[in-house]
């Protein structure tokens, strides 16, 4: 359980407040541009310290812990892979800050590559992969990382609709099945409707507590109506 206890985040003049619990499953984070979606994810990942309040994971305070030292792994909009490392090396970084891997670790890397459908591409550099394959490679690293919280910051925004659906299906079949807490920032409400168990609306400097997707879209509050333009 991810808990925001009276969290207040400040970036320049902009302030974002959050007081909510997020459970396992796929949670979509939606809201207008500049509303604070990425700010929220940055705080969970540890790139941004709250001005006030605490973020807890399973009751443990995350304050002051470095990004690499949190139970969190994150995919960004771009630059999720190091171009000079092979796919296997990129994925292997999930196991620790080193490039050499033991035989057992190499097997785990191969397994996870098979699971995302890149079984025989581990030796390639990212530039030799298609956009969809690059996303799969990044996802493989998240799978291997074995961290309970996964943040997707518009990670698949650059993909076309079909590829994006493919990736979200893969997220559903792997990360969500494994019981991880996945937060996904998306610009496309239909992604949220199709895949998310629940939705967090971030608007007007406030992070709303998650609501079930069906209920939220059946009776959207004013802020969501304004965002959707309905």
């Amino acid at each position: 359980m991810l808990t925001f206890d009276n969290v207040s985040l400040r970036v320049g003049e902009f302030t974002l407040t959050a007081d909510a619990h997020v459970g396992p499953g796929l949670t979509a984070v939606i809201g207008p541009s500049g509303g604070g979606k990425s700010t929220l994810l940055s705080a969970i990942a540890g790139f941004l310290d709250p001005d006030a309040g605490q973020i807890y994971w399973d009751g443990r305070d995350l304050s002051g812990r470095a990004p690499g030292d949190r139970p969190v792994t994150m995919l960004f909009q771009d630059n999720n892979l190091f171009p000079h490392l092979t796919v296997a090396q990129n994925v292997g970084l999930a196991l620790g800050p080193r490039l050499r891997t033991s035989a057992a670790e190499t097997r785990r890397i191969d397994d996870v590559l098979v699971r995302v459908g890149l079984g025989d591409l581990g030796h390639r550099k990212p530039a030799a992969l298609s956009g969809g394959q690059q996303s799969r490679a990044a996802l493989a690293r998240v799978l291997l990382a074995d961290r309970p919280v996964v943040l997707l910051d518009e990670a698949f925004a650059a993909l076309g609709p079909a590829l994006r659906a493919e990736m979200l299906e893969l997220v559903q079949g792997t990360l969500v099945q494994a019981g991880r807490t996945v937060l996904m920032v998306t610009h496309d409400p239909s992604d949220a409707r199709a895949w998310a168990d629940q939705v967090i609306l971030v608007a007007d400097g406030v992070v709303q507590p998650p609501q079930s997707t069906a209920a939220l879209f059946a009776d959207p509050p004013a802020a969501l109506r304004a965002y959707l333009g309905t």
Partner: peptide
Amino acid sequence: RLSQSLGLSGWAALRIV
């Protein structure tokens, strides 16, 4: 940000990234 989230810092970040 990618390096930080992977826990790459100091000498490892210099060498690997």
